[in-house]
Simulated assay, not measured.
Amino acid sequence: MIDNKRAVALLIKGHEKRRYFNSFGKKNRLCTAWSLAGAKLFLSKERKEYQAVVKKLDAKNVKYKVVEISTINDTDSSTDDLLFIRRIK
């Protein structure tokens, strides 16, 4: 049996290295994470929280990419959960 779990993250452009959206800090400053472990994951692009963040990023003229993250747990094999990342936008 294969069980899929999906989420989306926002990859912030403009940094030398990969940075992911984490939150807005004091005075609405953009806070980023160095890896997916610190990134804010959204369960769906249709959720109000995701749409509010994208609207704020667009207002601040921040360039970003939407990255789809999914895990596949294949219980028929002996492997652990696998992590797949796919850029959407």
Rank of each mutant, 00 (worst) to 15 (best):
45 K>N: 04
14 G>L: 03
79 T>S: 14
60 K>F: 11
27 K>Q: 13
9 A>T: 14
22 N>K: 10
66 V>I: 12
79 T>M: 05
44 S>E: 00
88 I>F: 01
60 K>C: 06
64 Y>M: 02
70 S>F: 10
52 A>F: 03
51 Q>T: 05
44 S>K: 11
37 A>R: 10
16 E>F: 06
12 I>E: 06
5 K>N: 12
12 I>A: 02
87 R>D: 15
43 L>A: 10
36 L>I: 12
89 K>D: 15
48 K>E: 05
63 K>S: 13
85 I>P: 02
73 N>C: 03
88 I>V: 06
51 Q>A: 00
69 I>P: 02
64 Y>V: 03
65 K>V: 00
54 V>C: 12
85 I>R: 07
10 L>A: 08
76 D>G: 11
28 N>L: 02
68 E>A: 03
26 K>H: 07
38 G>N: 06
55 K>Q: 12
29 R>P: 00
44 S>G: 04
75 T>Y: 09
37 A>M: 00
74 D>Y: 10
45 K>T: 14
61 N>P: 00
74 D>E: 07
50 Y>S: 03
45 K>Q: 08
44 S>N: 00
88 I>H: 08
18 R>W: 01
70 S>P: 03
43 L>W: 11
78 S>L: 14
46 E>S: 15
70 S>M: 00
52 A>C: 10
19 R>E: 11
85 I>D: 01
39 A>T: 02
8 V>D: 04
17 K>P: 07
19 R>W: 05
30 L>S: 07
31 C>L: 01
61 N>M: 04
77 S>I: 12
70 S>C: 01
55 K>C: 08
83 L>Q: 12
52 A>R: 06
39 A>G: 10
34 W>S: 11
9 A>L: 09
29 R>V: 12
59 A>Y: 09
12 I>Q: 09
11 L>W: 12
43 L>S: 11
45 K>W: 01
5 K>P: 06
53 V>M: 04
23 S>F: 00
21 F>Q: 01
15 H>T: 14
13 K>D: 09
76 D>P: 01
24 F>G: 09
65 K>M: 06
71 T>Y: 04
73 N>Y: 02
44 S>M: 06
6 R>S: 15
26 K>N: 11
64 Y>P: 06
50 Y>H: 10
74 D>Q: 10
63 K>R: 02
23 S>M: 13
80 D>W: 10
52 A>Q: 11
71 T>C: 15
58 D>P: 02
7 A>D: 08
82 L>I: 10
12 I>M: 13
